[in-house]
Design a protein around this nucleic acid. Structure first.
Lengths: 257, 257
DNA sequence: CTTGACCCTCACGCCACGTCAGGGCCTATC
DNA sequence: GATAGGCCCTGACGTGGCGTGAGGGTCAAG
């Protein structure tokens, strides 16, 4: 005759509502209905439910499961590969966020909520976890961050507001220079790059020319940082990097780095 | 005067809609409004936005961010620890799912969608990733799974339906025995345990007594497996384990294991 | 005044169900 | 036959965090 909805639900570990839903969306249709309209599931329905729950468990959206289950073996393999890519990305991200939380917990020795806001020197709420990993990878040193944490631990809303305001002004001034066609290696642009470096040194950490160079590269190489500047004005990230490079070369030539 | 909503959105890398939403839910209220009703954000608002986005990035629900930002430093630390626990769990799960997909991809040499359904011998859609890791950890051998995969690769809906039906009958028969007060170590219960073992050997892999013992333990020790049986009848998981143990001892005494 | 960019509130939609309302079906018992 | 209890059905609102669009107001420049 067939199994009723609650039997199937119990056996498969899902809710009756879930089975209703799956029927509605065409993911799992019961093989039959009683005269009273009760859903009646057959063995092949149960077999399909197994498949559905397997793919659901792997994170496939239901709509996609419908498609996958009606596809060829090659299509199923391709779907699994794509899902793997997404899962790998999630796993990496989870790991990075764990590192971020660990860092946040380590550094919570004072009372401020803002212990990790050295990240904000990059002018917006960037992904804190990826930011840290990448800056570390690029710079290969952690002392600057330790120094930054020590300083910013005591900052309050006023300080952060000031930081934000300064950063915004710098960004705007750079955009105006670029708009006016001033060369990135010219004195005005370098002056702004130097102001940027001073801003970092004032609020966060010592920023020698070499480190500043690295930061400039990061602004261009990383899509998120680039996006921050590109939002202000197209090409601004590269402009700032070039200004930083020119400024760094000048500092190094003067032996002041 | 204050920044308007799109300036803030651009600077912070969020949408205007997001800022509206945050205003609505009291997460981030603009410090002012123009005569026309425009939201005007102040530096301290931006500072708070930084905090909001930081916690959001870490996966905190917005409602919780509201609470966390109004809490004491100790409460913030506790919130971060709890979130770390969740993230660690997610990371572990992602890793396990990756392994499951890898396994699925490895074994896709034929055309069947059902390459991993040996898991279903445990009577329901269990978490395939955790299931596999735990069974491997417990049993310390993989040949049974390789054999299972080889067999099940070619199973279709009919076979799976038959497996499901047999499993359901076994479960029901066990419940009737328990209901009737038959001892788990008695001949009838052992007969069903043996039928269970035969079921596994028939459909999945060789199941010597020692392995069957391990499976019996798993049914009780793991909350999900236990739940499967407990749903049929309270105490059934332990009943089955005891029947399996008695049966295994019998087989070993007879030197048939 | 017109135009274009931006702002406001309101509201429906998304995804995968959870929860509940209102009413019918089925079986056992009185 | 009536009743009670368990189960089934459809319909519908809600959840979290926005995305999208409608309809209309504001502001600055031409």
């Amino acid at each position: 005759m067939g199994m009723k909805v609650s039997e199937v639900a119990r056996l498969a570990g899902v809710s009756v509502r879930t089975l209703h839903h799956y029927d509605e969306i065409g993911l799992l249709r019961p093989g039959g209905r009683s005269a009273a309209g009760y859903r009646l599931y057959r063995p092949e329905d149960l077999a399909r439910l197994q498949q559905v729950l397997f793919f659901r468990e792997l994170g496939f959206p239901l709509e996609e499961i419908v498609r996958t289950l009606s596809g060829s073996p090659d299509e199923v393999t391709a779907a699994l590969r794509e899902q793997r890519r997404l899962l790998a990305s999630q796993a990496a991200r989870a790991g990075a966020l764990l590192a971020a939380i660990d860092r946040a917990l380590e550094e919570r020795e004072g009372g401020s909520v803002m212990t990790d806001e050295e990240r904000f020197e990059l002018f917006g709420a960037q992904d804190p976890a990826r930011h840290e990993a990448e800056v570390r990878a690029r710079w290969g040193q952690t002392e600057a961050f330790a120094e930054s944490a020590r300083r910013t631990r005591r900052y309050g809303a006023r300080e952060w507001g000031a930081i934000q305001a300064e950063a915004g002004e710098l960004s705007a001034a750079l955009a105006r220079l670029a708009e006016a066609g001033a060369p990135a290696g010219g004195p005005e642009a370098m002056a702004l790059a130097e102001a940027h470096r001073a801003h970092l040194e004032r609020w966060f950490y010592p920023c020698p020319a070499a480190m500043h160079r690295g930061l400039g590269d990061l602004y261009v190489d990383d899509a998120r940082f680039a996006a921050s500047y590109e939002r202000v004005r197209p090409g601004l990230a590269a402009y700032l990097r070039d200004a930083i490079r020119a400024n760094a070369s000048r500092l190094e030539a003067a032996g002041a780095a």
